[in-house]
Every structure is written in C-alpha cells, then in structure tokens.
Design a protein around this nucleic acid. Structure first.
Lengths: 207, 207
DNA sequence: CTGTTTTGCCGACCATCGGTCGACAGTTAG
DNA sequence: CTAACTGTCGACCGATGGTCGGCAAAACAG
C-alpha cells in the first residue's frame, strides 16, 4: 500500500504546515492558499484530503489536545511524586503550543484566534476532565482533598487555568502577574479543600 | 444640527439591526449585505458610519456590556437586600442578550460565535470586576467573606459563571445541569470564604 | 439670492477568499 | 491491454468585506 501511505504522508504534511500557520498567524488570518504555497500543492489536492479549512482546524486541535493529554497521563502515573505536584504539573503541561516565537514573548501582538481558542478549550476540557478526576479521587481517598463536587471543580480549575494564563483573553502586565498566580493557587486550594498554603510552593513554577 | 442628529439616528439603526443579527445568526454568519437589506441602505452608507464589520461588533459589545453593568449597579446599590443576594443577582443579570428566540431554547443549534463570545468575555470582565470589587470589599468589612485575593477571585467567579452557563462552550444535558450549578455555588462559597451552604438557596434562581 | 462646503448617501466595482470540478497521469488489478 | 482507483492539478465560481467617485440636499458664507 505504498500509495495509501503516500496519501497519509501528504495529509500529515498539510496538517503540520496548517498547524504552524494557525498558531502563529491565527486561523482566520491563514489562507488556504498560504498553506498550499508552503506545502507546494494545488487547491484540488488540499480538498482531496480535507472537506474544509475548518475540518483541518478540528483535526489539529484534536492532535494538540491529545498530545497534552498524553503528557498529563505520563506525569500523573509517576507515583514517586506527591499527588498534588503531579496534578499541578499535569495542568501546566497543557498547551505549551500556543507560545509564539519564544524570543518576542514580550510586546508581541497576540493574534486574535477566537475560533481556535474556543474549540481548543472545549476539546481540552472534555479530554482532560476524566484524567484529573481519577487523580482527585485518589487525593480524596488519601484525605488530602475535601470536596463535594470533584468533577465540576476540576472543570472549573481547568477552565480557569487555561483562560487566565494560556488564553489571550486576559491582557495584564508583568506587575500584576504574581498576584494573579497567587490568587489562582489560593482559590485552587480552597476548591480542592486542601490545607491553606499547600500550593504556595508552585508560585515559582510559573515562568 | 439636524443633519448630525440624523446621522446618529442612522448609526443607531445600523447598530440595532446588526446586534439582532449577530446575536441570532452569529457574527461570521451575518453578512454586511444582510444588514444593508434590513436597514435598507447602500453599502457606501454602511461604510460611511463604520470602518469595518468588526468595528460594529466592538460597538455592540460595548453596548451590551454597558447595559449589563448598569443593571448590576442598580442591583448592587439596593442596600435593603442582603449583600450576598445582591452579588449573585448582579452576576446573573449579565448577558441575558444571548438567548435565542425564547421558544426554541431546547434543541436549538447554538451558533458558533467565537469572536463575539471572546470579545464579550474580555470586555465584560474588565467592566464588571471593579463593580463587584467594592461589593466584595463590603462583605469583607462585614465579616461575611474571608479571602486574600478579592480581585482575582471576582475575576474567576465572573469568568466561571459566564463560561459555564452563558457561553456555548459547555454542552451538557439537562440531567447534568443541577450538579453543575451546585458545584459552581459550592466553589463560589469556598472562594469567597462564606460559611458552607450559604449560597445553597440560589439553586432555584437558575432557570 | 448665489456660490461653496459639508453631510449623507448611492451602487458599481474590486480583490480575495473558501470551495468545486473536470481532466489527467501513474499505479494496480483483472 | 484494459479498467479502475489514487492522487494531483489549476481554471473557475459565488460570495464576501471593503473602496471609490459621484450625486443631491442641506448648511453656510458673501
């Protein structure tokens, strides 16, 4: 099946190029022609593999989320690390894809990428919630956490973590950052029902 | 200045029609021509008042957020109502704009409206946080709330309330709804540092 | 009253976009 | 050899957001 494999290779080529462009230039701002030019194919070829530009987006988001989930699973299963550390690290291991070229991190104009962002949030939440649910259950069993609505709490923490720090929605300056992180950690402690100050050490883990 | 006022009237016409269309059909799905047809003007007229379709969106969002903020201010200043009730009501008074035709509320396909949603979230957060900040400060002074990061906590609650219940991101069924609301209220209690169960009565306030 | 400027409006026109389609080579199968 | 399938091509299409030069009536200036 050399031809079939050839087809899959082409598909991946398109996916890779599109992903790069979507993340750096934004989904709406990326033209199908932009993709075509870099992959060096004709329009017909693109639409031979995908039914629409949006279908490509969905496939990419699925990839990104899956990669994040795999990292989380890896982190979560390492029982030599304290549970609370594992959970924090699993959350923080999500979506490091959305960094632009690392040099220009300051002063860079965040692309408006609403569609990508929204779909990512939705997909990520659906994928990650079950993973963290078992971890939190483990914490509850070990009397580390005390909470009545584990699933809803996880959803909230995941949502907050993403919206506050990864997503481009909040545009606060460097001076406000530490307070935002401390606030997030404090609220996370309260929602999970850990002892107060249990998460304080994670402040430094944020870049 | 009759002509100037005439101009403002036209502007408002465009804004009203566009708002109706954006909310019901979605921003991307609404064509400039759709607006033109209903307002019954030519393309040139539209672009005489606005520089782009997106500028119209921004103006509309600003209106919607401002209306919500006005409602919140009204609610918040009525000192005859218990503080905690006022805060809850102020939060819930945000964005009732996003309901479709009320009849079809079940089974209706939520329009994908990522751009509108994202801009709204951003703008609403910026406008509402200061309002609730003074309210929460009042609660802290009255020994009702106990929290270390009031601003960050308000941002989180606002964000969660919107993302979980108003936004179209979460697509859970009717059976899961009560748990989501209870979970949200429980976490809100913890974040604000009220006594446990203080917010339980608000369950029925959700439709 | 007359000339001039400003305000509001028109719609033909444009570039670009996402997407379609018929044709066609190269390989594989019968 | 023929038939069929796979992958590729690029001209083409309709729709969309946006531009532009012109036009009419009101407002203003003398």
């Amino acid at each position: 099946m050399k031809t079939v494999k050839e087809g899959e290779v082409r598909r991946q080529e398109i996916l890779m190029v599109a992903r790069e462009l979507f993340v750096t230039k934004g989904y709406e701002q990326t033209t199908v022609n932009d993709i075509l030019k870099i992959v060096d194919i004709a329009k017909g070829t693109f639409y031979y593999y995908f039914n629409s530009k949006e279908e490509v987006l969905a496939a990419i988001i699925l990839d990104i989320v899956e990669e994040g989930a795999k990292r989380a699973e890896q982190i979560l299963k390492d029982k030599s690390v304290p549970l609370i550390n594992r959970i924090m690290m699993a959350i923080m291991a999500q979506s490091p894809e959305f960094e632009g070229s690392e040099e220009i991190r300051d002063e860079m104009h965040k692309v408006d990428n609403a569609k990508l962002e929204q779909l990512y949030t939705k997909t990520m939440l659906k994928r990650m919630t079950p993973l963290l649910e078992v971890a939190v259950a483990e914490g509850v069993a070990a009397d580390l956490f005390h909470l009545d609505y584990p699933r809803e709490t996880i959803e909230s923490i995941l949502l907050l973590g993403h919206m506050l720090f990864d997503c481009n929605i909040m545009d606060w300056g460097m001076t406000e950052y530490p307070a935002k992180i401390q606030g997030f950690l404090a609220n996370m402690e309260r929602m999970l029902g850990t002892g107060a100050g249990e998460l304080k050490d994670f402040l430094q883990m944020f870049a």
